[in-house]
């Protein structure tokens, strides 16, 4: 085992030396070998991250605003007031959210309520299937993320997503962020790439829960769907929940208590 490791190091050194011609003694491993990289000790790990939204608790515009602005402010999501808007998490009516529910006489409060929408982080995501560059992909913990560095802006994923979860930067998003204090700990996006909710993967990596969960004061439960003892599974076991467009086989990871 140790021999193999040493061999790899030497091999890494020499290939880097050959490739760069500049390999400095003892440092070549920096960019090359995999054991220079690991996940943080405090990182939250899960087999399949999921979310339950208690729609009954979202009974005032302020509650939506708290959740939406927490996400959009932190992630530098521009506020564009047109059909070319960018949004990671947003609200809409019952029939717009649950288009399969064609009931004629929904309960009054169900019909009047608004519902949060975000990327469903599907188990079988159509957006990932169609992406020609693997710029969008599903991580081992179930989160569907975007690599903005690689996206060519073909928008195939937007056509494929049945949930309208994806936004395209039709122009430089910073045009709409000028009058706003940017969050310097998170990037913006650039013109010509697609973006969407990341389930706050950058915060999970440092042991924090997603921002919408934090801001919801208990109305959104987040956790590992693979773990029967997780909060999210307990909530699912105790409540009747539905998902958006379940018949399409995409297997959303976001559940709604109605």
């Amino acid at each position: 085992m140790k021999n193999r490791r040493q061999f790899l190091k030497v091999a890494g050194l020499s290939t880097l030396g050959l490739a760069g011609g500049l390999a400095l003694p003892g440092m070549a491993r920096a960019a090359g070998l995999k054991d220079s990289y690991r996940s943080g000790q405090e990182a939250l790990k899960g087999g399949h991250w999921g979310m339950v939204i208690d729609t009954r608790a979202f009974d005032s515009p302020e509650k939506f605003e708290a959740v939406i602005s927490a996400c959009h402010k932190y992630h530098n999501v521009p506020a564009i007031n047109s059909k070319r808007e960018v949004k990671w998490i947003w609200k809409d009516g019952y029939h717009q959210t649950f288009t399969d529910q064609k009931d004629n006489y929904p309960a009054k409060d169900v019909l009047e309520r608004k519902y949060l929408m975000l990327c469903n982080h599907c188990v079988n995501p159509a957006c990932v299937r169609v992406c020609p560059t693997q710029a969008t992909f599903r991580r081992s913990d179930g989160i569907v993320v975007m690599d903005y560095h690689r996206c060519i802006g073909c928008r195939f994923c937007m056509a494929a997503c049945p949930y309208g979860a994806r936004s395209f930067n039709f122009e430089d998003p910073r045009n709409f962020l000028e009058d706003r204090e940017l969050n310097v700990s998170f990037p913006t996006r650039m013109r010509g790439v697609v973006e969407k909710c990341t389930f706050c993967s950058e915060l999970l990596a440092v042991g924090k829960a997603p921002l919408c969960v934090e801001a919801s004061e208990g109305a959104i439960v987040f956790g590992d769907l693979d773990d029967p003892a997780s909060d999210v599974r307990k909530v699912l076991a105790e409540n009747f929940t539905i998902r958006r467009k379940p018949t399409l086989g995409t297997e959303p990871s976001v559940y709604y208590i109605i």
Binding site: P132, T133, R150
Partner: peptide
């Protein structure tokens, strides 16, 4: 027409650099 539709046309070769057989767009290319 595919090219002028791209948001990041200078990255178009990513389709070849990161070939993705499960994408129909790759096969179309």
């Amino acid at each position: 027409f595919i090219f002028v539709d791209l948001g990041q046309p200078q990255r178009v070769l990513n389709v070849i650099l990161h070939p993705t057989p499960n994408s129909v767009m790759f096969w179309d290319m």
